[in-house]
């Protein structure tokens, strides 16, 4: 069989057309996702030279990452902020999702979901700036409080600090948390709640024993969707924190672009990725009981 007929036959086969269909996406993913990731991995085990990366294998970057107290403390701070943002976002998102799913009339649910997604119509940068305007030194809160005479000088506790990041990020990621929780709440059979009450449990106890455990998959999705990107967010710390309180992503940016130590930056990036993966897997492992054994 000649190569040409074999090629023609392959093109007609189901596998061939399937490959043809996914190839644009596959090429895109390989070029823009897998290749850069491989480069980062490669860089992380090479030696830094002046203005160039020398092709000499070393574990030195990783040793530096895991032993240097600065990198360690920045990493811990980033993890702490991410956990705080995640907890706050999910805690605030759950009641919203619950309200839309259980108390909004079915005909109005689409409208509510639409309203929830409206913040996405503006750029992320603009939303972050909004918080800067609200929380900043001369911001809405400070000038408002000073105008009414409650305080004499601007509060520093609300801007350029970790709390300010957490508030800003929690707001930015709220819809990402609301939607998955809403979806699982919608799937809960309402007769289960009636059954719970008929078996002698109050509405609140039924919520704790039926609704909450059944919504765990949605909570898990919300947690991961918020936790994973927030740890890598560097726009918000830059703008809200004024660059004074760096997170791990800012650290990587500085190492990569300012100090031109690409191998060390790459090693920190890979370490951060590994930590996020480990934390996420640990989280999923802890709640595994609620993720399986369901219809």
């Amino acid at each position: 069989m000649s190569l040409a007929t074999r090629w023609a036959r392959f093109r007609k086969s189901e596998g061939g057309s399937g490959l043809a269909l996914v190839s644009p996406t596959a090429i895109y993913a390989i070029l823009l996702l897998a290749a850069p990731l491989a480069t980062i991995l490669l860089f992380s085990v090479l030696t830094d030279g002046y203005l160039v990366v020398e092709p000499v294998f070393t574990f030195g970057n990783y040793i530096e990452t895991w032993t240097n107290r600065i990198y360690r403390s920045v990493m811990m701070r980033s993890l702490g902020v991410s956990v705080a943002v995640t907890v706050l976002t999910v805690l605030l998102a759950y009641p919203v999702a619950y309200f839309v799913s259980f108390h909004v009339q079915p005909s109005k649910k689409s409208l509510w979901l639409f309203l929830i997604t409206i913040p996405f119509w503006t750029s992320y940068l603009i939303r972050v700036f909004l918080w800067k305007v609200i929380l900043g030194y001369n911001g809405v809160i400070n000038s408002g409080l000073m105008a009414t005479g409650i305080i004499d000088e601007p509060l520093t506790a609300i801007s350029y600090n970790v709390q300010a990041f957490v508030v800003t990020l929690a707001h930015a990621y709220a819809p990402f948390a609301i939607l998955p929780i809403y979806v699982v709440l919608e799937k809960i059979d309402r007769s289960l709640l009636e059954a719970g009450q008929d078996l002698g449990e109050s509405k609140f106890r039924t919520f704790l024993r039926v609704t909450l455990p059944l919504s765990v998959p949605g909570i898990a999705a919300a947690v991961l969707i918020v936790f994973i990107p927030t740890i890598g967010d560097y726009v918000t710390p830059n703008l809200i924190g004024g660059g004074k309180i760096p997170m791990i992503a800012n650290m990587i940016e500085v190492l990569m672009l300012v100090r031109d130590n690409k191998p060390l930056g790459a090693a920190i990036a890979v370490s951060a990725m590994a930590i996020v993966t480990a934390v996420s897997l640990l989280f999923l492992f802890t709640i595994r009981k609620y993720l399986r054994g369901q219809k």
Binding site: S191, D198, V210, L214
Partner: peptide
Amino acid sequence: GLIFQDFALFPH
């Protein structure tokens, strides 16, 4: 006590 058409057993 109530028994439902779809039984409404708690899946979790």
